[in-house]
Computed example of a mutant assay.
Amino acid sequence: MKSLKLMALCLLVIATGTAHAQLAGKNVILVHGLQADDLADNPANQQEIDQNGDAYWQAFWASRAEARIDWGSHERVEGKTAQRAFQQMVEISQQGLCNQGCILVTHSTGDLVGRYILANQERWLSNAGYQPLNIITSLDFAGAGGGSELADLAVTAAYADGFSDEAIKLAVTAYIGTEPTPDNLGVLRDLQPAVARNLAISPNNVPRLRFVGAGSDYYGLTGSFLPGEDDGVVALHSTCGGTQVGSYESCVSDVRLDGKRTSVDAPNALYYNHYPILMGEKVDHGQVINTESGNTLTYANNGLSFSGVDVNFDTETYQERPWWKFWGSADTYQVVSDSEQSSVSGLVYDTLN
């Protein structure tokens, strides 16, 4: 009897752990972003790449996912990265993790890698005799699918005779942690906006939900090289999912990043099936996937549903008159209720669950 009770307890723990790793009842697959250390010191093998991938997500998402697709930032998307992704997707397919649907969670350059995966995985796996992954939606945090102008700087600097501009040197070395050379650019070549925006851009049926910020990262050294509002690494034209490079102040034309309802510069068009969801004026590039709280968030879209993934954040509006404004109506703000009490990823995870 005791052994049966012990077995039942073990099964309960296993079931609880599995449920905890799901989001909206679906298994989660993580695709990390740029790992600058890979550029200066190339990983020796897939095991080292996997270890780096695990470390990347430890702050929040590691314990909430069933699988990862790990790749090396020293390699190109259409080359070795695609090969590594395919091998890992074969394992995911064999395990049946996506038979009931999976949610992709990407960060930064993982948005670009994820787009390439979504464009090709069905064909790759079918041709190899495996079941394609049933990915129902993608959550893209600080997505760099539209590229980053910092990659342009790095590539240009790599072919120059040293840094001619101290500000550019500081920005590039802050971003990648080393002085760029033609031999250590890796995925930065793909991350150039002109290149990124021509990589796997055919429409597909997987909705991509965007979560963006505009806080200063890298001590403000990089922001001046990015057009419009940015999170210190990627400008809004990319994180919002805009079809064109531009200098934008928000993902939508009627709400600022601080939640104020007003006319504002935003992308005229977004890539097919791309939906900006949350925006944070003071959220920087790394904060979207860690546990830091204290930032008020607004919303670009809310009350949407994607194959059982319900996007329905608690929201509120309020009016506020600046101390210096003595006439006219007060300003109206729309915000996610109590968003400063949670991290961005924590809020998304709890809400979608």
Rank of each mutant, 00 (worst) to 15 (best):
A160N: 14
H32A: 12
A200Q: 03
I49S: 04
T296A: 03
D37P: 05
K325D: 07
A266N: 06
D230V: 00
K260S: 02
Q341D: 15
E122F: 03
I168H: 09
W324R: 03
G232N: 08
A128V: 11
L191P: 04
L209G: 03
Y248N: 10
C240I: 04
D41M: 03
K26Q: 12
G114I: 06
I168W: 08
E149H: 13
S250P: 05
Q341L: 15
E78T: 13
L34G: 01
S164M: 11
F326N: 08
L112N: 11
A194Q: 13
S224Q: 15
Q35W: 03
A142Q: 04
S63I: 07
I136C: 02
N273L: 03
A196R: 11
D230L: 07
G33H: 01
I103L: 15
S345D: 00
Y116S: 14
G346D: 08
A36R: 13
R123S: 15
G241I: 11
Q192T: 12
V233L: 01
W61P: 00
L34C: 10
I277M: 08
A128C: 07
R321T: 14
V31G: 11
H107R: 09
S337W: 08
S3Q: 14
R84M: 14
N52G: 15
R115E: 15
G259M: 02
I14S: 12
L226Y: 10
P276K: 08
S3D: 13
G259I: 00
S345N: 02
S250V: 02
D217T: 12
L185Y: 02
E281C: 05
Q83P: 07
L352S: 02
M279S: 01
N198T: 11
E316L: 06
A200E: 05
A142R: 08
V252S: 00
W71F: 10
Y333D: 04
L6Q: 12
D152A: 07
N99D: 15
T178C: 02
L170K: 12
G147H: 07
G147P: 08
P132F: 04
W61Y: 07
L104D: 11
A15C: 01
I201S: 11
Q341H: 13
N45W: 10
V28R: 07
A200W: 04
T109I: 08
N273P: 02
T18E: 12
D258K: 09
N312M: 10
E91R: 13
P276T: 11
I49H: 04
Y272M: 01
Q131R: 14
A36W: 01
L304A: 09
I201E: 10
N134E: 09
A40R: 10
L257Q: 03
T178K: 06
E75K: 14
D258A: 05
V13R: 00
V90I: 15
T298N: 03
A8W: 09
Q121M: 06
S224E: 13
S293H: 13
Q95H: 12
Q334F: 01
Y275D: 04
D38I: 00
G223S: 14
A40D: 11
D331K: 15
N134L: 05
G213N: 11
S138Q: 15
Q192E: 15
P182E: 01
G241Q: 02
G129I: 13
H20Q: 11
V113M: 14
F141A: 04
L30N: 06
A160G: 08
L209R: 06
R76G: 01
K5F: 14
S250N: 05
D230W: 06
E149M: 11
E75I: 07
L209T: 05
E316N: 00
G286Y: 00
Q244E: 15
I69R: 11
